[in-house]
Every structure is written in structure tokens, then in C-alpha cells.
Amino acid sequence: MIEQIQSVLTNWDAMLPVLPQLVVSGIAIGMLYALIALSMTILYRATTVVNFGHGDLVMLGAYALFILMPMVTFNIAVESSALGLLASFVPPFLVALILSLFVLFAMGYIIHRVFIWPILKGPHLSLALMAIAIGYAVRGVIRKEYGKEVLQMPRPFPEQEFEVFNWGGIGTYMTLDEMIFCGVVIVMLLVSYIVFSKTRFGQIVQAMFQTQRGSSLVGINVMHYNNLIWGVGCSLGALGGVMLGLALALDPDVGVWTLLRGFAAMTLGGFGSLYGAVIGGLIIGILEKVLGVFISTAFIEITCYLVIILVLLIRPKGLFGQHATLRI
């Protein structure tokens, strides 16, 4: 390890030109973490529940698109009249994507209504294990059906890369996927910011975050709003899952990996803060790349764990969060 750091220090000049590339790819991957963290934050903001099974629902989103895709393509080919006309404007990928987001919205809604709501009054531990168990069961079903092979996510467009800029003969590249990811996440952040701060829905959610009991006293249907928020959180997570599937492949095990990075982004940004989650995700993405190249690729895996531990030890409320510790 020490030798590696020494070699990095001596090769600093040679390594410097790759820094822009690391930042750009770090942002690209960070956007993915940000989206996952954003979906978990939305869930947390309304229900004060941290969904430990969120990673597996993210994974399910990708599989939902994979399963829906052939159906959509088939239907569009068969229906000649109205749908056929529609199909000439709307690519089947987009249709399948929107459908899968709806499916995951329904999943989130049902999961909360059937499994979470009845035990919401119980201890936090039951909630945590319930979420984990739901995730585990989802993973098991997917693995049983699709786990024997590595399936490819359907692609809406071929992959291509662009040189963003050039520094001393070393180019910095970005793929079309990454650009679209960044755009989608920024739009999602803006939309959720507007929804949570400017609309009545956002005010209700804020009230529920403050006190669920109090809000039900003033006539808010807490269960209904909680269901909705779970649906929204899950479908946002599913969007992240689709991105993950496009970047990697369909893999039933990405859930755990995703969950911890989402947690890290949330912790760094501060629990409950929307833009904190996004900025946290970006910082972790960049940090992973920089540590990976300048010290050792072994550090890529533990960057998020180190961030979690250091942030909670040094500044538990994160960058933009409210108080996180209990004062005794």
C-alpha cells in the first residue's frame, strides 16, 4: 500500500491529465447513486422509514422493463390502427419504461399497504426486517426465474462516446448513456424539489414527516399518502435500476451494492435532504474514481463504507441534513 502511494506521488504529473476524466466518469456514476439516494430520501421524508429492501426493488425495476419489453414490442407490431400510429412516434423502449415505472409504483403502493402499514406502530426493527425480507423474497423470485443466465437490458439506442474536451493530448470521454443519465437525474431532482416545496402535496408530506399522528388529527389520510410516497419512491428507484441495467447487465444481486451506495450518498448529503442526496452521490462517485486510480482499485469498494463511517463519526448530520444524533 505504501509503495503504491509513493509511486503515485512520484507519478503525479503523469497522472494529472486523467483527473478531468475521473471527475466526468465520477459524476456519471454518481448520478446513479444520486438517483437511488433521491428515491430513498423521498421515502424517508414522508414516512420516516428507511427501506432496507430498496436495493432489491431497484433491481426489480430493471427486470420489469426487461419482462415488459417483448410484450410491448409484440403488441405494437400487432395493433395496426391507433396503437400502431402511436408506435411510430413513441419508441417501444419508452413505453416499456413508463409501464415498468407504473408497475413499480403499484408494487410500492401494495407493499406499503399490505406489509408495512400493519406493523408501522411496532418497533423499528420489525420494519427493517420486513423491508429486508421483502427484498430477499423479490430477489429469490427473480433468481428462480431469470438467475441462470446473464440477461442483457434492451437498449433504446446504440452506445456511443464523445470527446468532451482534450487536455495535453489526453481526451476526456463521455458516453451518450451517461449524458442522458445526468439529464434525467437533474430533471428528477428539480421535479421532486418543486413537488416537495411548492405544492400542497409537498406540504402534506412535510407535515407527515413532522408528526404522523398530528397530521392524521388535522384530517390527512396518512395511510393513503404513505402508500403514494412508497409508490413514488419505488418507481424512482426503478428508474435507477433501469440505468444500472443499461450500464451493467441484469443481475439479481445488484440490490445490496446499490443500497449501500444509496445510504452513503444519503448520509453524506444529510438524511432527508433532496439536493444533499444528489450532491452526496456525486461526491462519492468522484471519490471512488479518484481513490481507485490514485491509490488502488481496492479502495473503490470501500469508499462508500469509509464515507458512511467517517461522516457519522465526525459530522453525523451530513452536509445539508438536520440533526441525526440523540442528545443524552
Partner: peptide, 16 residues
Amino acid sequence: LRGVRLFYLAIMTLAF
């Protein structure tokens, strides 16, 4: 001991 509780503690110990 530093006052980290609930989910924060859960996440942190998972990372550990």
C-alpha cells in the same frame, strides 16, 4: 457512545 442511533447506527454498523 457518540450518540449515533436508530437507522444511522444500523447503516454505520453495516458499513463496519
